[in-house]
């Protein structure tokens, strides 16, 4: 007997028995599959609201669990554990510990927006995935994901110069995530590129490292973006109840410093 809504149950909680007798009745074959019963006591009632307070998570409450997001999902097709519908369900139920079991893969959403296209309720599941991985990081459940590092390196460069110079972004990202730039496929790619190119273009590409592409008179825009971004971060910390923690940590550091000084 297939279990309805199997997507919503962990495989280890599904028990199938070949031979089974219950209350003297032989139910082998047909009624042989059961969901292990369990008691959940650690509901986090704030979780949905907190994720909804982060950019992208705003419309999570609209979900009616049709499963179109998971059905259309690019990442789910290569990793069945990647299940947006299930995570939205867990978040709305407040089942934090269950969600945390998948904390290391949620950031892998590739933002292809197939889910957004398929969703009949305009939940914007892509946004919910981003908000959820952001929430996991802000709450300290996970380290910053490689993707978040990349976003930050990227945004910092735009705030500074208004433009992206890809070579620099790549170098900074590899540095920040402690990866080597000399991986065999990367070397092969550069070799392919160089074998075709005229010397003149190679020199001008080299110069791009010295003369960085920049938007002129960008300082005021960069400062205004930076100021706005900091305000938003403060708002998010507050929505997630982290402001107090940050304050406590600050005071502690200060008192430690003053002790060290005295």
């Amino acid at each position: 007997m297939p279990i309805h809504e199997e997507h919503l149950i962990r495989p280890e909680n599904i028990k199938t028995k070949d031979n089974l007798v219950i209350d003297g009745i032989d139910v082998s074959g047909h009624w042989s599959t059961f969901i292990e019963s369990r008691v959940v006591t650690d509901y986090n009632e704030e979780m949905e609201e907190e994720i909804a307070a982060l950019p992208g998570g705003e419309f999570i409450h609209r979900c009616w669990q049709c499963g179109s997001c998971t059905n259309s999902c690019t990442v789910n097709a290569i990793n069945p554990e990647f299940n947006p519908r299930y995570w939205i369900y867990l978040i709305r139920m407040g089942m934090e510990s269950e969600l945390l079991r998948d904390k290391d893969i949620i950031w892998q959403c590739v933002s292809c927006n197939k889910c957004t296209y398929a969703c009949p309720r305009d939940v914007f599941p892509e946004g919910v995935m981003k908000a959820t991985s952001h929430w996991l990081e802000l709450k300290g459940h996970t380290e910053k994901s490689p993707s978040m590092h990349f976003d930050e390196v990227f945004a910092e460069q735009i705030i500074e110069t208004g433009k992206i110079e890809e070579g620099r972004t790549i170098r900074n990202f590899f540095k920040r995530t402690g990866q080597s730039l000399t991986q065999d496929w990367m070397i092969q790619m550069v070799k392919n590129l160089i074998s075709n190119l005229p010397v003149k273009l190679l020199i001008s590409m080299g110069l791009a490292n010295v003369l960085r592409p920049k938007t002129r008179n960008w300082a005021a825009a960069g400062a205004a973006i930076s100021e706005y971004a900091e305000e938003k971060q403060e708002e998010q910390r507050e929505a997630l109840g982290l402001t107090e923690l940050v304050e406590m940590a600050k005071q502690e550091t200060e008192s430690l410093e003053s002790k060290a000084n005295s």
Binding site: G56, S111, K163, I225, Y228, A229
Partner: peptide
């Protein structure tokens, strides 16, 4: 003239409205 980055796929993950600004410029 003197264009800037649109925000690509990354800036919206910091904040979507920054991307809106960058493109609007």
């Amino acid at each position: 003239k003197n264009w800037n980055c649109c925000g690509a796929m990354e800036v919206k993950n910091i904040d979507p409205k920054i991307q809106t600004y960058l493109s609007s410029r």
